[in-house]
Structures are given as structure tokens and as C-alpha cells.
Design a protein around this nucleic acid. Structure first.
Lengths: 114, 114
DNA sequence: CCGTATCCTATTAGATACTG
DNA sequence: CAGTATCTAATAGGATACGG
């Protein structure tokens, strides 16, 4: 199935999915948001080493693809909450499977640090 | 779970998985090899626009992570076959789920070309 | 047939400083 | 608090030529 979205063309839906979740931080952010709604700084702290630029970019990407939603409270100081959407939530069980597969692979490699 | 493999560190197995399957071609090559064992040129033709450099690099990466195996026949002209491993095959059903999810997303976006 | 070896461009990510 | 704006570094990917 050919997919066109936001000016980009994909030859199959799997390619489309990779574009949505690949990159250094997107999967991780989604994973954390699947547990609870979080504020910008909260995500920033839990990820530790991400720069503000990358975090903002990651959040915007996820929002663009409707995997998370952004709610701005008109208060001072600013308050912004990020929540996973239903579509985003549907990815999580699949992420768990991938993780499990990764664990099994790692055990076979026997170079694990627990 | 901390994973270290081939000089690289991963903070979780999901990150490890992304490293294994992300990139422009790896998922696609694995997908095709899940259907049948193929020769180098056969893969090259079916992918169409991949350069030899990228194809070789992709195959080496997949082999390094033991998702495919490489068999060289000592004949002239050379013959090399690539086969998906059991570990690689385990990924395929998960890929199908991701694909299905991508299709559903695409339908919601309603910018599809079938 | 199945690759390597260079060289080059494009994309992604990080560092740092600044702002409503 | 939640971001932008620049600048730079690192990595991924592509073009082309050549070799056993």
C-alpha cells in the first residue's frame, strides 16, 4: 500500500511506521507517556541526557503523527502536559513484544549486564 | 536491563531493537528474506533503488546481529545466498503487527494512495 | 556475480545561549 | 516553565569507479 503523509511518500506501511518511531528518543518518550501524562520538565528529567532541542523536536514529531497530544494551560509560569493518544497506546503492546525479543537476543549473545 | 553488544551500550532492550532494525533498508530486506532465501542480485533487483554499498552494508549488519546467515558457494561466477535465521523469523510477526498499525493510521489520515 | 574503495551530500543530534 | 535560535559534530546514505 502506497502512503503519502505530510509531503512524504512511503512504499509500504512498515516504512511509514519506522519513520514514526525511529530516532534516538521517540520510542522512549512514547514508552514513558504510556504510563502517565507528563509535563515537559518531567519528561526532560526522566530521560536525563536529552537536550531541550531534541526533546521539543521529538514531542513535535510525535504530535504531528497524532501519537501524543499537547495541552497548554494559560498560566504563569507556563504548564504544558503531554498525553499519549489512543493510536499511540496501541503501539505499546507491540513495543513490549519487541523489547521481549530484544531481551531474548541479548541473552543469546551473553554479553549482558543486568 | 543494560545491554552491551559489539562495543555499543544500550539502556534498554527496546533501544537495542531499534538499532537492529532501523535504517532505510534493514526491515525491508528482512521482510523479503522471510519469504525465501535469496541471492545478492535477487535482493538488489527486488529493492530497486538501493545502491550496492548500502545493500552490502545492510546485509553485513543483519548478519552481525544474527538475523540472517550468509552462505558462499565456491563457484565461478560467485554465488552467495542469504537466509533469515530463527531469531530473524521471530521478528516477522511483530513487523506484520506494526504494518497493520501503520495501515490503520494511514486510513485515519485519509491521505492514502492505494 | 558479488562485492570494495573513495569521495561527497544530507540528515540527525548535540552544545550553548537566550526569551516570553 | 517551556521553550527558540544558532552553530557545530556525528552519522547515514548516495554516486561513481574499480577488483577477484
Amino acid at each position: 500500500m502506497q502512503i503519502k503523509y505530510k509531503e512524504k511518500d512511503y512504499t509500504c506501511s512498515f516504512e511509514f511506521v519506522l519513520d514514526i518511531v525511529s530516532g534516538k528518543w521517540k520510542g522512549l518518550v512514547l514508552w514513558h507517556l504510556s504510563k502517565k501524562t507528563m509535563r515537559y520538565n518531567e519528561i526532560h528529567k526522566i530521560l536525563g541526557k536529552i537536550t531541550q532541542k531534541m526533546l521539543t523536536q521529538t514531542l513535535r514529531d510525535l504530535e504531528k503523527h497524532k501519537l501524543i497530544s499537547r495541552k497548554v494551560y494559560p498560566v504563569i509560569p507556563p504548564k504544558v502536559e503531554y498525553t499519549i493518544t489512543k493510536n499511540g497506546q496501541k503501539l505499546i503492546p507491540i513495543f513490549h513484544q519487541l523489547s521481549k525479543w530484544g531481551d531474548e537476543m541479548a541473552e543469546e549473545y551473553a554479553e549482558i549486564k543486568k
